[in-house]
Amino acid sequence: MSRKLPALLGTNPGAPFPDPETALREPDGLLAIGGDLSPRRLLNAYANGIFPWYSQGQPLLWWSPDPRTVFATDGVHLSSRFRRQLRRSDWTVVADRAFDQVVLACATAPGRGGHGTWITDAMRAAYSTLHAIGHAHSIEVLDGQGRLVGGLYGVAVGRMFFGESMFSGESGGSKVALAALARVLHGWGWPLLDAQVENAHLQRMGAQAWARPRFLAEVRRLAALPGRVGPWDAAFGLPAASLGTASGSEGHWAPV
């Protein structure tokens, strides 16, 4: 019996991707090889529940794993102990102030077991271009002196946000970025945040595992709705201490 192989993408960035339901079971979710990281190709991928993930020296690989790890934007959990700490915090959360710095921090953060190595120079350039055209966004956590202590970045298509990576320069920085993003998205009426692949840290914060058919149906619905293209800096300015209150997103992607 011949082994099933992933599809090979051509040079046309507007060509449709293969049906994600045809992705391999082993390795889980590998759908296609090749293509490019042009904005058109990337936005088409995300709108169909597909993302690129490969390491330096590998061909460009595209994935749609089953199950998919997601957060309900009103279901991000912060422990009671951590919320108490935040009430005394001088941290603030902003958006789109230091996109390239956040991506670089995600790529070079220590203690990630090599998981940042997939954020290659080509990936950084591609997402910087998406940021420039208003579809990729960074969430920054700043201390009282304005220093970056945590953050995340991802891609917005329609009313769907796809988290790519996050980091902590100080303990809890990425938790604050994720909780603040979820609170803002929930306020906008965006119900779902993609976290791609599960890990214990995400599960502790309230991540859910959705079967791929359910995830794809919801993504395609949300991606087709009017979104917020352009900078998000005016929508943030959230004190981290507000995440320690009993309201908002505290229900109940790479580690802190």
Results as ranks from 00 to 15, higher is better:
147 R>N: 15
157 V>S: 05
165 S>A: 13
221 R>Y: 00
215 F>H: 08
145 Q>A: 15
223 A>R: 04
160 M>P: 01
169 G>E: 12
184 V>E: 11
193 L>A: 03
188 W>D: 11
193 L>G: 03
168 S>G: 05
194 D>V: 05
180 A>E: 06
227 G>I: 12
177 A>M: 09
172 G>F: 05
204 R>P: 01
174 S>Q: 07
234 A>F: 01
212 R>S: 00
133 I>R: 15
188 W>A: 08
174 S>G: 08
168 S>T: 11
224 A>L: 09
174 S>P: 06
226 P>V: 15
158 G>K: 05
209 A>G: 07
233 D>H: 15
219 V>D: 01
228 R>L: 14
159 R>E: 04
217 A>N: 02
178 L>F: 02
182 A>G: 06
191 P>S: 12
197 V>Q: 15
167 F>G: 08
200 A>C: 03
216 L>I: 13
175 K>F: 00
204 R>N: 12
139 I>M: 05
191 P>R: 14
182 A>E: 06
206 G>D: 08
175 K>H: 02
202 L>G: 10
235 A>G: 03
216 L>F: 00
152 L>H: 02
174 S>H: 05
197 V>G: 03
160 M>R: 05
220 R>Y: 00
224 A>P: 09
214 R>E: 00
160 M>E: 02
234 A>T: 14
220 R>L: 00
194 D>Q: 05
217 A>S: 09
230 G>W: 04
234 A>V: 13
223 A>V: 06
188 W>R: 15
186 H>L: 04
135 H>S: 12
232 W>M: 12
149 V>L: 03
231 P>A: 07
187 G>W: 02
222 L>M: 07
167 F>T: 13
